[in-house]
Design a protein around this nucleic acid. Structure first.
Length: 767
DNA sequence: GAGCACTGC
């Protein structure tokens, strides 16, 4: 390698000053062969490309590249992919790339890649797999010859964006040209793109219209161990496609040692393991189980601060409330410590997903300096949710405090309710958390549970998302992806049959699937929208109710986080402001009013941020609702779904909207238990619920449609709007066929209404 | 009269 470097350097020196003429010739489309010694054997060849540019890549043979050949091309003065001279920065980056653990195994990787259609790649943190493997593939797939792309999927958008930028730098190309990324709302790829980073969900979307993923020669699934819904579906789909398309190469990359499961799943694919580059982390357990883990966490953080050498602390808790509480308690105690025992300064930062980005960024602030020169070191302590386990890495963490819990989504198919529950984490999760202490130097991890509990009670892996979710959306997606036989669709962890049945049933009621389980026209259309089926059906049906513009807004508002802000220190004022937008008939209409006011403020040229602040609305979430609205609107236009409104002066303006809600949400309706009662009973499921206190509805309506069911201290329905029961019979007659109801108040009420309607029609008929 | 783990299309 040092030889190559030497020759490269002398080359650069020789050519010094001739850069401009070189560039000119390249731009003219003529090859300066003297410039590239590797083209010597091409002298007598005819031009083999349209623009007369002969590439050093021509000496590579597809699916036969050696690590040495590729490295030689990487060492050239000119970028073989663009023919532009390499920048200064390029060679610096190249050097650091070759220090990555994965570099040593490039040939081994290529050998496997050449001999197998599917391979599993295990690399721990810091191995460089996410950035390097796709580039190794690039030099072997030679996409400029085949016109096919290499895709590398990521579970999260930021990862796709930042890795693409990094790799573009490494390849010395402009982001969006040879290397790009594609995520929802943003496609930064172009005609020249050969390597594309994308979210796994985005690839699934694409696959809906290209069942064979024919644009790609290679698909790399990264972070497969996270087992997101999209990853699981993608893997099962790729397994099928691999049989049809023998030319498609698949690489599954994972960080866990659970590689065998992936290997077995993928027809015993060969495995390549690359060591990571992390520092050892010493693990400590508590001798006895802790009763109050928040209390124990606070104590542990303070002990570390008092007794351990310099280094930042990361504490894992389960949610916003717990985190803010722990922050307060630590801050309180630390002041005493500083006064009484001359401790150094400790800065505490909360970190959770709903925190505004600017506040999230603060965790990267440097730890505070000691109070005086030579004094006890200052440090920072970050108290985070699981967000710090996967999405965000913070360098400089030396101590991790792990109480062993996180909030996890669970789904109960019987009651059709998804809820969040504080649950013990898995062994894999505990290991991941501990690893956060060893990114820059050796660290320590304090587990606030016993070693016996770790070994005997924690499950090895967190249950994959697919086992914890309502699958209505997934089933619809699969149907659109051309999966005919759901029962035999080979998922890595098949969900419970009851969950599957529930999803099929729900989609059948929504008329997205017919009685044979086949995708209907409506279902096919609904799957085009990045929405839950009920929302999609509601939106598609809305022109029938003359309010598709308004439903477009409401759908968007329901797809983003809560737009009403309610700070702890200004709850009353926030509630008053919200009441300004309140519509007596319910929360959906209130959302719409707030949105219209926001758009009004925007159009009048006000400072929107300021306006939102004054009105206790989240400018960020409103902006993102607007973004979603634009995307949904475009999909509606593409499919010729009419965009119309009832005139605002028309007395049916709001009634039409309330009726339109039912076209998608007729299964989410509740009836009041008695005329003086505050409890409601959900239709068909017979769950007893209360209306969530965040509602603007004050007069207790007898019938409401609700957006979601939440299980917290009580069972609540949230975001509710008043409806009339006769609409149910009219808009969803199949679901509201009285004969299908169990005996009870709801059946009685519906029977009465049915009769009333019949009488009324009879009278009409008589006239 | 209460809350919002985290993602993604």
């Amino acid at each position: 390698m040092s030889d190559t470097k030497g020759s490269k350097r002398s080359n650069t020196e020789e050519e010094d000053g001739s850069q401009d003429s070189k560039r000119l010739k390249m731009a003219n489309g003529k090859t300066d062969e003297k410039y590239n010694p590797y083209l010597a054997h091409h002298y007598d060849d005819n031009d083999n490309s349209q623009n007369g540019f002969q590439s050093p890549l021509d000496q590579l043979q597809r699916h036969n590249t050696t690590a040495q050949q590729a490295a030689k091309l990487e060492d050239l003065d000119a970028n073989p992919w663009t023919s532009q001279p390499h920048s200064q920065r390029y060679f610096g980056i190249l050097k650091s790339r070759r220090d990555l653990p994965v570099h040593k195994q490039r040939q081994e990787f290529l050998d496997m890649y050449h001999s197998s259609q599917i391979l599993v790649f295990v690399g721990e943190t810091g191995s460089g797999k996410t950035t390097q493997i796709p580039q190794y593939v690039l030099y072997d797939e030679l996409p400029h010859q085949t016109g096919k792309l290499i895709a590398c999927t990521q579970p999260r958008r930021v990862a796709a964006m930042s890795v693409a930028q990094r790799v573009a730098n490494e390849l010395d190309v402009e982001l969006g040209q040879e290397v790009g990324y594609s995520i929802r709302f943003e496609n930064r790829t172009g005609p020249k793109t050969m390597l594309k980073y994308m979210t796994d969900g985005q690839l699934l979307r694409e696959a809906m219209h290209d069942h064979d993923m024919s644009r790609y020669s290679t698909i790399i699934i990264d972070e497969a161990h996270e087992r997101t819904l999209a990853t699981d579906i993608l893997m099962a789909l790729l397994k099928q496609i691999a049989e049809r398309r023998k030319d498609l190469k698949i690489i599954v990359m994972s960080a866990t040692l659970d590689a065998q499961k992936f290997q077995t799943y993928f027809f015993n694919a060969p495995l390549l393991a690359v060591p990571g580059r992390t520092f050892p982390v010493e693990i400590f357990y508590t001798p006895e189980p802790e009763r109050d883990y928040v209390e124990a966490s606070v104590r542990t953080v303070l002990q570390i601060h008092a007794a351990e050498p310099e280094g930042d602390i990361l504490l894992f808790l389960t949610g916003e409330e717990e985190i803010e509480d722990a922050c307060r308690r630590i801050n309180l105690e630390v002041d005493d410590m500083i006064r009484e025992s001359d401790a150094g300064p400790l800065k505490v930062y909360p970190l959770y997903g709903t925190l505004p980005p600017a506040q999230q960024q603060r965790i990267f602030d440097k730890a505070p300096e000691p109070f005086r020169k030579g004094g006890r070191p200052g440090r920072k302590c970050i108290i985070a949710t699981n967000i710090a386990e996967t999405s965000l890495t913070i360098d400089g963490i030396v101590y991790v405090v792990d109480p062993g819990f996180s909030k996890q989504k669970i789904y109960n198919p019987r009651s059709r309710v998804e809820s969040l529950l504080v649950s013990p984490i898995s062994k894999a999760s505990a290991q991941q958390r501990a690893g956060r202490a060893g990114r820059t130097r050796p660290g320590k991890c304090f587990r606030l549970y016993t070693e016996k509990a770790f070994k005997g009670e924690l499950i090895p892996q967190t249950y994959p998302e697919i086992l914890r979710s309502n699958l209505a959306n997934t089933v619809l997606e699969l149907k659109k992806l051309g999966v005919e036989d759901l029962v035999h669709f080979d998922l890595m962890d098949p969900p419970a049959p009851e969950t599957m049945m529930r999803a099929l049933e729900e989609l059948n009621y929504l008329a997205c699937l017919d009685d044979d389980g086949e995708l209907t026209k409506l279902g096919s259309l609904a799957s085009e929208f990045p929405l839950d089926p009920a929302l999609a059906v509601m939106l598609i049906s809305s022109p029938e109710f003359y309010c598709s513009n308004e439903m477009l807004s409401i759908t968007s508002l329901l797809s983003v986080p809560q737009i009403f802000v309610r700070p702890n220190n200004a709850r009353k004022r926030a509630d008053e402001m919200k009441m300004q937008f309140a519509h007596p008939d319910g929360d959906h209409l209130t959302l719409l009013n707030a949105y219209h006011a926001f758009k009004g403020a925007e159009q009048s040229g006000s400072d929107v941020k300021q306006w939102c602040h004054e009105h206790f609305l989240s400018a960020r979430h409103l902006a993102s609702a607007d973004n979603v609205r634009t995307q949904l609107k475009r999909i509606m236009e593409t499919h010729d779904i009419e965009l119309i409104s009832t005139p605002f002066q028309d007395k049916n303006y709001y009634t039409n909207i309330r009726r339109a809600l039912l076209a998608g949400f007729f299964m989410q309706v509740a009836m009041r238990e008695g005329s003086n009662s505050k409890t409601y009973k959900t239709v068909k499921d017979d769950q007893l619920v209360m209306i969530h206190p965040s509602t603007v509805v004050s007069s207790p309506y007898d019938w409401v449609v609700y957006n979601e069911f939440v299980l917290t201290t009580k069972q609540y329905v949230r975001t509710v709007t008043n409806i009339r029961p006769e609409w149910l019979l009219e808009i969803a007659p199949v679901y509201y066929d009285v004969d299908t109801f169990e005996k009870g108040e709801i059946k009685t009420a519906l029977t009465r209404i049915t009769e009333k309607i019949r009488r009324r029609q009879a009278i009409k008929g008589d006239r």
